[in-house]
């Protein structure tokens, strides 16, 4: 058995034990506050069969995707600009840090006044949540691009733009990866927060709202389970994407027979 599958199994031990304990404790009796997990699974199946879940998913994922797209692309561009120009850095970095200190939910009233209670406010809020992690990481990544690599670009007569594209961005990718994964996670949190602003908004949080209003805890638990699983899935997919795609080279340090350090 591979190391990987062993570690997956180890990771599943605790949830399996908890699930079993929960199931046993609710065996043959009905608890309003702690309904049996099987009821939540049934609720998920029911949501799926009635196509309600698909509808919630479509609405939520659209908000999430648009918010992330907006936030990460702006955050990347801003981070890259800050990281490649000292002048831009001096002018803008303190301002960015100042804005970052405002807790994200503190913007909500302002966003509602500007953009209303619709999806636009939510998308902007998610974008703001995704913006800063990728900005900070891209900036840091650009700052640490080894001068030696940039000099290789000089030796080949590359322009400033070519050096950014062909040297700085690839060299900063490990940092950019961290930024995107943080943005993804944070954005998911902000999505749920933004959805809970209004009821019956059509997104996944409606499952939680309906469950709470009708005191159907199994529905609330089902909603939490769905949000957790999806968040985990996105995080996993993003990590996999980077490690088999653009950052494949990072995991190739296998064979180093007589590699010497540089003096």
């Amino acid at each position: 058995m591979s190391d990987r599958s062993i570690s997956v199994i180890k990771g599943l031990v605790l949830p399996a034990v908890l699930l079993a304990a929960w199931t046993l404790s609710t065996w043959n009796r009905h608890s309003l506050l702690f309904p049996a997990p099987s009821l939540s699974f049934q609720a998920i199946a029911e949501l799926w069969n009635t196509h309600a879940l698909q509808g919630y998913l479509a609405v939520s994922l659209r908000r999430y995707a648009l918010g992330l797209l907006l936030g990460t692309s702006l955050g990347f561009v801003a981070g890259a600009a800050l990281g490649s120009s000292r002048i831009i850095e001096r002018f803008f970095l303190p301002n960015f840090h100042m804005f970052r200190q405002v807790p994200l939910v503190g913007w909500i009233p302002l966003l509602i006044i500007w953009f209303g209670l619709g999806d636009l406010s939510r998308i902007v809020l998610i974008a703001m949540g995704a913006f800063f992690p990728i900005l900070v990481n891209t900036h840091a990544g650009f700052r640490q691009v080894p001068r030696n690599y940039l000099e290789v670009g000089d030796a080949f007569g590359l322009t400033r733009w070519e050096k950014i594209r062909r040297i700085a961005i690839p060299a900063a990718l490990p940092w950019i990866r961290s930024g995107t994964i943080l943005s993804l996670t944070f954005g998911w949190t902000i999505l749920v927060a933004s959805e809970l602003l209004t009821q019956a908004n059509g997104g996944l949080s409606d499952i939680l709202d309906v469950g709470r209003e009708r005191f159907r805890m199994e529905l609330v638990n089902a909603g939490i389970l769905i949000l957790g699983l999806l968040g985990f899935l996105f995080n996993y997919a993003a990590t996999r994407f980077w490690s088999i795609g653009p950052l494949k080279w990072l995991s190739q340090n296998i064979h180093t027979p007589s590699k010497r350090g540089t003096t």
Binding site: N148, Y149, E151, V152, A155, F156, G157, I167, P170, A171, L173, P246, L247, W249, T262, T263
Partner: peptide
């Protein structure tokens, strides 16, 4: 491009 420069550390781009 009329001059090729080889540095002491090989400076191959790791990616």
């Amino acid at each position: 491009r009329d001059r090729g420069f080889v540095f002491q550390d090989h400076r191959l781009l790791p990616w």
